[in-house]
């Protein structure tokens, strides 16, 4: 196996008496879509927070592209190529779709301590931002303020922002949450189109989408990974069925 792009090493996080991340270790090789599934409150978002740098783990290490990033901030990790989306969409509502993506391009292309030239007239920034919008199917909405986009489009925009960062790993926290069936279909197709070019750590409740997209799946229950494997292996795992999938099918 190639050197993993992401390696989590014994991550632990407690909130008060509750162990929300309880010794999580996993590896994501380049180009893999690694899904993390688990019931509500299993600690999936908390895990993503620790990988992205929004939360510090109590113990354990986050190794990204061979470098220990455990002590680095969200912004520093982002500059190294770690892009994340949020469970509740996080965009700049007053900016146009294009300017949302252009900020991400700007962040990785030279200093932002430039005071004279209008940023909106920097062709290089706009071009790269437009590329990201095109790849996520938002090109014709470039000039629309993000606040006026539909829910699904905002999800697409968050992906476009992530792509505009030229990331090496995308951390997606329930990218399909709240999307209607049509929007889900569009987003899944979009993610499938990005497969192999990026590595993904994908948290998602939509099992159909997870099994369609993921190369490997880790099942998180009460902060512990109870199984990791290919979609087929996970589907067949009796412990997983009992702990998680069974409930889901019954529901």
């Amino acid at each position: 196996m190639a050197e993993p792009i992401l390696r989590l090493d014994g991550l632990r996080k407690r909130f008060g008496g509750l162990a929300v991340t309880d010794g999580v270790s996993l590896e994501v090789p380049p180009g893999e879509i690694h899904a993390v599934i688990g019931p509500n409150g299993a600690g999936k978002t908390t895990l993503i927070h620790q990988v992205s740098g929004t939360l510090r783990p109590d113990a354990g290490r986050v190794v990204f592209a061979g470098r220990d990033v455990t002590a680095l901030s969200l912004a520093r990790r982002a500059r190294l190529g770690l892009a994340r989306s949020f469970q509740v969409t996080s965009i700049l509502p007053g900016f146009t779709a294009l300017e949302n993506a252009a900020l991400a391009v700007q962040a990785r292309s030279g200093s932002s301590f430039r005071f004279l030239r209008p940023a909106a007239s920097e062709a290089a920034l706009n071009q790269a931002a437009m590329d990201a919008l095109e790849r996520t199917g938002l090109a014709d909405r470039a000039a629309v303020p993000a606040a006026a986009l539909s829910h699904g489009e905002r999800r697409q925009l968050e992906l476009a922002i992530a792509l505009a960062m030229q990331p090496r790993l995308l951390l997606l926290d329930e990218p399909l949450a709240g999307a209607g069936p049509e929007e889900t279909e569009r987003l899944v197709a979009l993610l499938r189109g990005l497969k192999r070019r990026y590595a993904f750590l994908l948290v998602e409740h939509d099992m159909q989408a997870v099994f369609a997209l993921a190369d490997r799946i880790s099942v998180l229950v009460y902060g512990r990974i109870v199984a990791t494997g290919t979609p087929d292996a996970i589907r067949a795992d009796p412990e997983v069925r009992a702990a998680y999938l069974g409930e889901d099918e019954a529901a």
Binding site: S90, L92, P93, L103, A107, P118, E122
Partner: peptide, 24 residues
Amino acid sequence: ASRFGRVLRAARENPLRVEAVGLS
């Protein structure tokens, strides 16, 4: 209107988003 101002305006709207793209 500059790059600097864009970061400033973005941070007013949503500082978390600004950090997530790599700017403090």
